[in-house]
C-alpha cells in the first residue's frame, strides 16, 4: 500500500508540472463540449437536447481519459522508467494501483468540470438527486476509462501502438452502444458487441435517469457492471503487465 501511495504521489507531482497534459486533460473536454453546444444549437427545437448532451459528455470524458492515460503509461515504458521502477523494487501491482490512485483524482476533477459545463451550457434543469446520479455515472465511466487505458498500455511498446485501439474500442462505442441510436435497433450481433463496451452501461443509466419515474434500483445492474469493469480491468492489467523481456 505504501508503494502504491508513493507512486500515486509521484504521478500527481509529475503531472502538475506537465502543462501540455493538464491542458489536454482539462481544457480539451471543455472546448469539445462547447463545440457540441454550437452543433446542438443548429438542430431543430424538437430534438431532445437532454437525451444527447449527457451521453456525449460521457463519451468525451471516456475517450480523453482512455487515450491520455494509455499514452502516459506507455511513455513510462519507452523512457525506461517502468523497467527502472520494477528493478528498484516496486511490485507491478503497486505500479498499476499507484497509477490508478493518481489518475483517480484527475478523473474525478475532469468529470466534474465536463459535467458542470454540460449542465450550465445546455440549461439542464435537474433535481439535485438526478445531478448527483449523473455525476456518479460519468465519474465511474472516467475511472473505467483510466483502467482501460492502463490495461491497453500493457500491450503497447510505444505510443503509436495505442492508435489501433481507437477504431477497435472507441469508435464502436459511438455506433453500437446507444450513443447515437438506440442499440435495440441494431442486428443482434452488433447489439451484443455494443454490450461488451463499458460506455453502453453508462449511457443506459443516463437515459434511464431522464425518465420521470426513474428509480436507482432500475439501473443497479448497470452500476454493478461499470464497477465490475474497474476491478476486472485492474485484475487483467496486473496479469498483462510484463516484468521481463
Amino acid at each position: 500500500m505504501n508503494h502504491m501511495i508513493i507512486i500515486a504521489q509521484r504521478v500527481l507531482t509529475q503531472l502538475k508540472g506537465d502543462r501540455r497534459f493538464l491542458t489536454l486533460y482539462f481544457i480539451a473536454p471543455v472546448l469539445i463540449i462547447y463545440f457540441l453546444k454550437l452543433l446542438i444549437d443548429t438542430l431543430p427545437h424538437f430534438v431532445p437536447v437532454v437525451n444527447i448532451a449527457m451521453p456525449i459528455c460521457a463519451f468525451i470524458v471516456h475517450f480523453l481519459s482512455f487515450i491520455l492515460c494509455a499514452i502516459l503509461l506507455i511513455q513510462e515504458r519507452t523512457r525506461g522508467t517502468l523497467e527502472r521502477m520494477l528493478i528498484a523494487g516496486y511490485p507491478k501491482t503497486s505500479i498499476i494501483g499507484g497509477y490508478t490512485l493518481g489518475y483517480f483524482g484527475l478523473a474525478t476533477l475532469q468529470s466534474l468540470i465536463a459535467f458542470t459545463e454540460s449542465i450550465w451550457l445546455f440549461h439542464l434543469n435537474y433535481s439535485f438527486g438526478t445531478i448527483l446520479y449523473m455525476f456518479i455515472v460519468i465519474w465511474l465511466l472516467s475511472v473505467v476509462s483510466v483502467m482501460l487505458g492502463i490495461f491497453i498500455s500493457t500491450f503497447a511498446k510505444h505510443e503509436a501502438h495505442v492508435l489501433p485501439f481507437i477504431p477497435l474500442i472507441i469508435l464502436p462505442s459511438v455506433f453500437l452502444t446507444g450513443l447515437i441510436i438506440d442499440s435495440d435497433k441494431l442486428p443482434l450481433w452488433a447489439e451484443w458487441l455494443g454490450d461488451c463496451l463499458p460506455i453502453h452501461y453508462a449511457i443506459n443509466i443516463l437515459n434511464e435517469i431522464n425518465h420521470a419515474d426513474y428509480q436507482v434500483i432500475d439501473t443497479l445492474a448497470d452500476f454493478a457492471i461499470l464497477i465490475g469493469y474497474i476491478f476486472g480491468l485492474l485484475f487483467l492489467a496486473s496479469f498483462t503487465l510484463k516484468e521481463t523481456e
Binding site: 509521484r10 507531482t13 502538475k16 523512457r79 525506461g80 527502472r84 528493478i87
Partner: peptide, 15 residues
C-alpha cells in the same frame, strides 16, 4: 542489494 543504471537516463523530466 543491486543498483541499476540503464543506458538511457530513465528519469522523470518533470521532477
Amino acid at each position: 542489494q543491486i543498483g541499476y543504471m540503464p543506458q538511457s537516463p530513465a528519469l522523470y523530466d518533470d521532477l
